[in-house]
Design a protein around this nucleic acid. Structure first.
Lengths: 171, 171
DNA sequence: AAAACCAGTTGCAAAAAGCAAGCAGTTGAA
DNA sequence: TTCAACTGCTTGCTTTTTGCAACTGGTTTT
């Protein structure tokens, strides 16, 4: 149980937790796709994660405090995975990674519209989004006056998908 | 040569380039430690990278455009590794990762003082720092009026080291 | 001419990732 | 009440990556 660290550098320690090819993908799908149980994460996976890797990552992320798991009352076998404050605070990292990826990598329009909104919204939008994730995942109370960032991101994504589908049909 | 991607998502694509335990460590050491050749990166490595892994990562990062390599005119065998615009733009990601690590991981004071300054300085400081890295790595011209962020980060680090050494000696 | 330094390479063992199939328990419809 | 579909995983196996230590051929310093 004695976790040994390579160094006390904050970058290194962050990398020790998140520095692999799947951990952030899993958290991303829970955060932006609101996928809360195993099959959802497995079958809707854009990148095609394998079930054993997913199981391993979920276990590790729960152990390390980035996710929590509770039983779904509606189904004895289902577990519900939730973000924690620790993973909710990854929003700025996701936003910066998204911005960087959009600038330098061959991203697809559909999958990068949310990153674009997050980039344009800046810190105030990230804060709103984090508050919203706290409502969704930490049972925090919702401010009914605020429009949902989550819904806005989702709507923008669906709009691009629809627009592209229409354009394709028109050809 | 046909690089195949798991998906067009910007987060995923960023992870495909940087999502391992060493790539960002190497870039961090070049960026914040100004280590420019192989031995420097190998021997001063806080985390103890192995020479074959270092060689492999340097090669990969050059191939992918995150580093450039040129011969050192003063020594026929030495190569000089430099950041590119692509890796200089990782500064915000480093800053956010540093902030996150400082909040949630057991960081050491010495190794996190730079992350603290970067966090407190915010976007304006990051922009200054990126300009400075362009001078150092891209042969851009320096604005002689501006005080160096690099020097400030370095001075703060050395100050903490000295203070802690003094405190230890006094015990 | 010798010693130290340079950027890596090589060979091998251990760990992690990836793939396909399977499993026991649960649920919902016929 | 039976059965198919669904649940969260697990197992067995192969391939890839990592980690370690020793080593290489060349260069520079003394």
């Amino acid at each position: 149980m004695t976790e040994t660290h390579r160094s006390g550098c904050p970058i290194n320690l962050t990398l020790e937790v998140l520095g692999d090819r799947w951990s952030l993908i899993v958290i991303r799908d829970i955060m932006f796709g609101n996928r809360r149980h195993f099959r959802e994460l497995l079958q809707n996976s854009e990148e095609g994660i394998a079930s054993n890797i997913l199981a391993d990552r979920l276990k590790r992320l729960v152990e390390r405090g980035l996710l929590s798991r509770e039983d779904d009352p509606s189904h004895k076998q289902k577990g519900i995975y939730s973000l924690t404050e620790m993973s909710i605070r990854l929003v700025p990292i996701f936003a910066e990674m998204g911005a960087w990826g959009r600038r330098f990598m061959p991203v697809s329009e559909e999958l990068s519209i949310r990153a674009q909104l997050l980039e344009e919204g800046g810190r105030p939008l990230w804060d709103d989004f984090m508050d919203e994730l706290r409502v969704l995942h930490l049972h925090a109370l919702r401010d009914p006056a605020k429009p949902s960032v989550f819904d806005r991101l989702r709507a923008a994504y669906l709009e691009v998908v629809a627009r592209n589908a229409a354009a394709e049909a028109a050809e």
